[in-house]
Amino acid sequence: MSSLWIINKAGGLIYQAEYFPYPKEGDMKSNDYLVLAGTLHGIHAIASRIVPAPSKESQGLEVLEADNLLIRVKMTATGTKLVLLADTAHPNSSSVLQRAYELYAEHVMKNPFYIAEMPIRIDAFDREIQRLLQ
């Protein structure tokens, strides 16, 4: 149904929750996800610079829709990006992404043992994201 990535401000993938039923033959490796996250980070940065109206400030790529895929990006105040990949038929992808951001703030950023910009390894956050995306 959907997948959530969290990309740090340097473009590194620090969290990935996968809930797509991919075919077994084409399973993606962890390195593939790192490359895709870095590419999306670059596209997001370029999109924030090529604004048609120079008087307006842009946060970069927010929504990308293809035939069967919807990519929604939420940029946090610290430069971290939450990326939701979902089916285009997903009824409320923007609210799911907003809720994921709230869970990130609650379980990750308030955790005194979490070091910013590092991979997220917090069981309570994993459980809440799994519940949200399924």
Score class of each variant (00 low, 15 high):
85 L>F: 14
68 N>K: 13
125 F>Y: 09
83 V>L: 05
118 M>Q: 15
80 T>E: 13
35 V>F: 14
41 H>A: 12
116 A>Q: 15
39 T>E: 08
55 S>M: 07
83 V>C: 08
48 S>M: 09
83 V>I: 14
129 I>N: 00
36 L>C: 08
96 V>L: 06
131 R>K: 13
128 E>V: 04
125 F>D: 00
33 Y>R: 09
9 K>S: 15
16 Q>Y: 11
75 M>D: 04
48 S>W: 05
29 K>V: 06
64 L>H: 09
129 I>M: 03
53 A>I: 14
100 A>F: 02
104 Y>S: 02
59 Q>W: 03
1 M>Y: 05
81 K>T: 07
61 L>A: 03
125 F>S: 00
39 T>G: 11
112 P>T: 06
98 Q>L: 09
86 A>M: 02
58 S>H: 06
131 R>L: 08
8 N>M: 11
81 K>R: 15
52 P>V: 13
124 A>W: 00
95 S>E: 10
92 N>Y: 10
45 A>T: 11
34 L>R: 12
108 V>Q: 05
68 N>L: 03
72 R>T: 04
29 K>S: 09
88 T>M: 06
120 I>M: 09
29 K>P: 00
130 Q>E: 10
99 R>N: 12
4 L>P: 00
12 G>W: 07
92 N>G: 08
85 L>T: 04
89 A>G: 05
47 A>K: 04
105 A>F: 07
77 A>W: 07
13 L>K: 10
53 A>C: 11
8 N>C: 12
66 A>K: 12
125 F>Q: 01
88 T>V: 15
30 S>A: 09
108 V>I: 15
48 S>T: 10
25 E>T: 07
67 D>P: 00
128 E>Y: 06
19 Y>T: 07
92 N>I: 03
118 M>K: 15
